[in-house]
């Protein structure tokens, strides 16, 4: 079983994200062999022109989406932390969509069942959004790695400011 510390998910650096939506194309193509943003498991939000970020599943511990499903259609993989959807059980009621704080659960326009990021687990070269992002804004991380990154960038900034003064 993966512990909270080992869980991997995709994080977008909003300083680097330019809102190009290439991740959406890469995702829909990787999973569905078509270009269609409404079939992408990662979506880009542009709030004002200068605030851009891509959002997808954070593989939460005790995920709210799983807890919310009244039909036990959702479960979390003990091995990867991925949310597993039993398409036969899902009737598209949308409780999981409402429960997710990140908008990571989405309704498929054709099957009318929900779908979510699976970290491209069957792709040998890993998540396709990360591979294609031209700004290197997307990375596969654990929460520990994220915390380390934040610390490093804070310290770098601190010393940079010092150097300047």
């Amino acid at each position: 079983m993966v512990t909270l510390h080992d869980r991997k998910f995709i994080s977008a650096d909003s300083d680097k994200c330019v809102g190009c939506q290439i991740c959406e194309y890469a995702c829909s193509f990787s999973h569905e062999k078509v270009f269609n943003a409404v079939k992408s498991r990662i979506r880009v939000v542009r709030a004002r022109q200068i605030k851009n970020i891509a959002v997808t599943c954070r593989k939460c511990q005790e995920p709210a989406c799983v807890a919310a499903c009244p039909r036990d259609a959702l479960s979390q993989s003990l091995e990867t932390g991925n949310i597993i959807i039993d398409k036969d059980q899902c009737n598209g009621c949308g409780w999981c969509i409402e429960a997710c704080d990140y908008g990571a659960m989405m309704m498929h326009p054709e099957t009318k069942t929900v779908y979510v990021c699976d970290l491209c687990q069957y792709k040998p070269d890993g998540p396709q959004c990360v591979k294609w992002c031209p700004e290197e804004a997307l990375t596969v991380v654990t929460s520990d790695v994220l915390a380390q990154k934040a610390r490093l960038s804070a310290i770098k900034k601190l010393f940079q400011d010092k150097d300047e003064t």
């Binding site: 330019v18 809102g19 190009c20 939506q21 290439i22 022109q49 200068i50 851009n52 031209p134």
Partner: peptide, 19 residues
């Protein structure tokens, strides 16, 4: 210039937003 952003599908991003 505060941020350079991109159009959809573009890998070169050139939109210079100034404040």
């Amino acid at each position: 210039v505060i941020k350079i952003i991109a159009c959809n599908s573009c890998a070169m991003r050139c939109e210079h937003e100034a404040i």
